[in-house]
Structure formats: structure tokens, C-alpha cells
Design a protein around this nucleic acid. Sequence first.
DNA 1: CAGAAAAACTTGTATCTACAACTATTGCTT
DNA 2: AAGCAATAGTTGTAGATACAAGTTTTTCTG
Lengths: 164, 164
Amino acid sequence: MSEQATATATRERKAKVPPRSPHGDAWESLTRTHAAIVQRLQEMLSAADFPPLPWYEVLATVAEAPEEQMRMGDLAEALVITRGGLTKLVDRLVKAGLLKRVFCETDRRVSYAALTPAGRDLLAEMRPAVIAELEVAFSANLSVAQANELRQTLDSVRGSACSA
Amino acid sequence: MSEQATATATRERKAKVPPRSPHGDAWESLTRTHAAIVQRLQEMLSAADFPPLPWYEVLATVAEAPEEQMRMGDLAEALVITRGGLTKLVDRLVKAGLLKRVFCETDRRVSYAALTPAGRDLLAEMRPAVIAELEVAFSANLSVAQANELRQTLDSVRGSACSA
DNA sequence: CAGAAAAACTTGTATCTACAACTATTGCTT
DNA sequence: AAGCAATAGTTGTAGATACAAGTTTTTCTG
């Protein structure tokens, strides 16, 4: 069997590489679309003298949390970055006055990242710009209904990707 | 009482921050799902002693190109990374023997990244592992038909995101 | 047909991220 | 209650990426 495969491969080199699959193609489309939109957003933010995209993601995530504060570990998980990386990212936001650290009374190990007024103000400024950019990127080819459908599909995929 | 006061204060503070939008939610889902799957793939590759994900993406993209080679600029655009970044990425792959640089006869400015036999072999080894991981992540919640639909949706979004 | 402008790629630098080791605190087990 | 394991977060270091400036080759223009 592998003899035959090798012989075939010798004649037709590309046959050695397994073919693409529907799920693989969907992934390729997902990753390239993601990268393209990230690029657009970063260009826009940089042109408007806003902080980089990861800062926005932190602010937007913390703002959704109760009391506008979040445990470091939970925040890292939500953003899908490492805890070490988050520590330094939050350090920068704290230094910029956009977040403050809040220490837990009942468990001295945990610390929270909490929105400051300046952080809330900046988010309020950035959000419309980000959303406008996304509208341009999405709306041309995606109705609101389609956007919701897309979100549901992706959420379910993420559900299984995280659990396993 | 104080609960109500707190709730009101919270609501008033958050009112400064513009609300979320359907497209914004779709984007959030897209970016987090992307990150989650990347994380899974990288874990798998590292556990199997394979090179990191960007190497796979380079190999897979070059392998699809005619003659299994691609101009640096086109490759950078396809991967949605900067040309400077690609130069160094390809440097590493060349040093590992997976790619070779081919210089254009008619235009001495351009250079191609071309697959070596070792690069083709490695891709042939990695692809099944990557696809298997994606099948696990996707298949649980996505039929082949749904995967194709997802790909089409994302492709059309990318089309408008890139052109503008 | 010079000489400027553009194009393709590379390089230098500074920042950011991940990975692994480390500290401090809490929970569990006997 | 003592000691070991688990949890939460930080830090040190190495590697990777973006951004901007630099080099070489090609194209355009007067």
C-alpha cells in the first residue's frame, strides 16, 4: 500500500499532499477574513490616533462585566490570551490611566481589572469608530439577519472548540 | 434601595458608552472563535513536535500556487501579514530547508518563495493533523453544507473588507 | 535619454506575546 | 493543625511582528 503510494508520489509529486477539506476551507476563510478585518481596524485606529486594537478589546470586555471589573484570569480567558500576557497588557492600560487594579478582600490571590472614568470615556469614543468600520466591512455583504446567523454559527463552533 | 440607586448609577454611567450592534457582535464572535481555534491548533502542533501554525500557513499557501512557488509580495498579501514580517518568516523556513528563494530572471526586484521537497513532505505530514483538529472543532456543530455556507459568507465579507 | 518616481524586497529597531519559572495565598487530607 | 497540592497572579527571557527607513531595480516623463 505504501509502496504503491510512494511509487505514485514519485511520478506525481503533488499527490503526496493530502487534499483540502470543506472544514479546512472554512477555516482558511475564517482566518483570512479575521486577519483582513483586524488589519482594517488597526489602520483606522492608528489613523485616528487611538490606542491599538487589544486595548479596545480589553476595555470593551471589562465594560460588559458586572461593576465594570473582572478577575484577571477570567479576562485572560475571555480574550483568549495567556495570563502572563494579560498582566503586562493591563500594566500598560493602568499606566495610561484607563484601568485600575482592585484587590479582592476575601481572597488575596485574586485581583481585578476595573474600568476608570478615563477608560470608560475612551471606550465611548472608540466604540462608534470601531462599529462604523465593521459596518462598512460587513454591511456591504451581510444583512443584520445574516450577521446574527453568522454569530450563532461561530458561537456554537467556539463552544465545542473550547470544551474539548 | 441602595441596590436601586446603584443600578441607576450603573445604568447612567454605561449610557455614555454606545450600545453594541449586530455586526459588532458578529465580529466579537468571529475574533474569539478564531482565537480559540488558533489556540487549539497550536497546542496540538506543539504536542506533536510540529512547527508553529504560521509555518503551516506559509507551506499550505505556497503549495497551492502554480509551480509551488509564489512572489513574496503576493504571499504576504495572501497571508495578510506585512512584507517585512514575511521576509523574516521565510528566512526561518529557508534556514529549516522547507523553502528556497528563487530569483526572477526578467525582473530582478522580485523573488519567489518556493517549496522544497522537505517542505512538501512536512506539509503532507502536517495537513492531516491540522484537518483532524479542525474536524473535531467544527464537525460537532457544523455539517459540511453549513461549513460551505460559512465559507461563502466569510469570503464575501473579506471581499468587501479588502477592496475598501 | 537622463533623472525623478514607483515598486519589490530587506533590514534595523522597538514593542508585544508566549512560555516557563517563581511567589503568595488558599484548599485539602489525614 | 501541619504539610502538601492546587490556584491566582507576576516576572524574566526569548522569539516573533509591525513600522519605518534603506537598497536595488524598473518605469515613467519631460
